[in-house]
Design a protein around this nucleic acid. Structure first.
Lengths: 94, 94
DNA sequence: TTTGACTTGTCAAATTATGTCAAATATAAC
DNA sequence: GTTATATTTGACATAATTTGACAAGTCAAA
């Protein structure tokens, strides 16, 4: 329950036999930072999500969705009322 | 679509004929800040949510839920994929 | 034991959040 | 009109968090 984005990009990277170093270079970020992103201890900047999708030949929308899910989850992970709050947004009436 | 929490506390405050000044004093924050919170241009610190519920004789859980809904909404308000991301969290499989 | 890939801790710089003040506006009573 | 009170707004200083980089660390394979 939580590092969906990081797990996904790690698995995509490994499937394609790419090194952190290579992907990081394309993104113009530090290898250490990308490592943390894969492990979920740091966030990738949002505007780099489409770029990493390109690098990994992945679907931009799918990655962005996972990215957003992680952000949302972070906000409510310790909140018993989190899902109720989500329902208010998804189903504004009632 | 957005200032649920602020609208709610404003309406509760007015129903009870309280001034911003009075509620702000109980919360130990500036009146100007509470005004902004009611208008949705600033956030109340999360740990003050139960306190404002007490002051306004409101249900703590209801207010916290609205508070969280605003936070969630802020995160995805410009994101077409926001609701899809929420569904991933609500319904983790599939 | 050396090399390469990855991980982790720490730090400064950048960014964002927070709270206050002063001035502006609004409304109502005089 | 003027006064008084409530609220709003913008600018600012400070506090807290995030971000990115570096150095040092682990680990596995050669």
């Amino acid at each position: 329950m939580e590092n969906r984005f990081g797990d996904k990009i790690k698995s995509l990277r490994e499937q394609q036999h790419l090194y952190l170093r290579q992907v990081a270079a394309h993104l113009e970020i530090d290898t250490a930072l990308l490592s943390k992103i894969e492990k979920g201890v740091r966030n990738l900047k949002k505007d780099l999500v489409p770029k990493i999708a390109e690098i990994l030949n992945a679907d931009k929308e799918e990655l962005l969705t996972l990215y957003l899910a992680d952000q949302l989850n972070e906000l409510i992970k310790d909140e018993p009322l989190g899902k109720k709050a989500m329902n208010i947004i998804i189903n504004p009436n009632n």
